[in-house]
């Protein structure tokens, strides 16, 4: 246990250092959130949407965290493969999924800075007021959200380890999740047939809960129910990613094709 935690910590710190040196990651966590916040603020400004700052800051921040996870956690496996180091990190005595978990944790910690950047930009550039009705609940939900994002990113990383289409996957997974989980507009405006997909995405519930903690919780039972779904989905994601890593372990030993581009 102690060794695993140490590996996660070292992998996380190393990943944060490596990621921040990549200009594309700097773009994902600094430039993209600022420009995206500018677009959404200008679109929401002077409209009838109430408490739109919550939509702008939360929506933009959550989208940016998601994008940074897509481009980094998903891309990292591909980079290891291209650099010829994927075989090494898979074959070391430490479990591969623990190393990947540390990497994703590092990216998520950095990614979450984009929410702060979005908030600061909106506050400083437009002096827009934003109040959080339930700050303690907000922080707790935000931490659960990050845990859930890590689980989702673990699945993505596993899929990319198995697939050779990392570029396609990481480029195409961003917008569908942002659209379907209602990060910037309620998912209710989407066609009904998309709902089942929205419901199995944990960001859908995370965004709903964060929005409730910003606007105020009127119905506590409904809030607890949505929180239970978020926790349940996160648990399912961890089970799924665990299964995927077991499949990966078997598959790469049989095929020996891990490093093949």
């Amino acid at each position: 246990m102690k060794n695993s935690l140490r590996t996660i910590w070292i992998s996380c710190i190393l990943q944060m250092k490596l990621s921040f040196m990549r200009p594309m990651f700097q773009y994902s966590i600094i430039i993209d959130p600022i420009v995206f916040a500018l677009i959404t603020y200008m679109m929401f400004k002077d409209t009838s949407v109430s408490n739109f700052i919550a939509y702008v800051v939360l929506g933009t921040g959550m989208s940016s965290i998601w994008n940074s996870i897509c481009f980094s956690s998903a891309g990292d496996i591909d980079r290891e493969r291209a650099g010829g180091t994927l075989e090494l990190i898979v074959s070391v005595p430490t479990n591969f999924k623990i190393i990947v978990f540390g990497k994703i944790l590092g990216n998520t910690i950095f990614g979450s800075i984009s929410l702060l950047i979005t908030f600061l930009f909106i506050k400083l550039a437009f002096n827009a007021p934003m109040s959080i009705a339930e700050p303690v609940v907000f922080v707790i939900i935000f931490i659960i959200t990050l845990i859930s994002y890590i689980a989702l990113a673990s699945i993505l990383a596993a899929l990319i380890t198995l697939s050779r289409n990392a570029v396609a996957l990481k480029n195409c997974i961003g917008y569908p999740v942002i659209i379907l989980s209602g990060m910037l507009f309620p998912m209710e405006i989407l066609p009904i047939w998309t709902r089942p997909v929205s419901f199995i995405l944990s960001p859908t519930w995370a965004v709903k809960l964060l929005r409730l903690s910003v606007n105020g919780i009127d119905d506590v039972n409904s809030f607890i129910f949505q929180l239970a779904i978020l926790v349940f989905l996160t648990g399912i994601y961890y089970l799924l990613s665990n299964t995927f890593y077991t499949i990966i372990d078997k598959s790469i030993r049989i095929k020996g094709s891990l490093g093949r581009m």
Binding site: T40, M43, N171, C172, Y175, I179, L184, F185, I189, L190
Partner: peptide, 20 residues
């Protein structure tokens, strides 16, 4: 995926946002 589907998804996203 990269050159056609992703740009179309971007278009759909901003159109839906404007609609809302």
């Amino acid at each position: 995926f990269v050159q056609i589907i992703d740009p179309i998804l971007q278009l759909i996203f901003f159109c839906l946002l404007a609609k809302y």
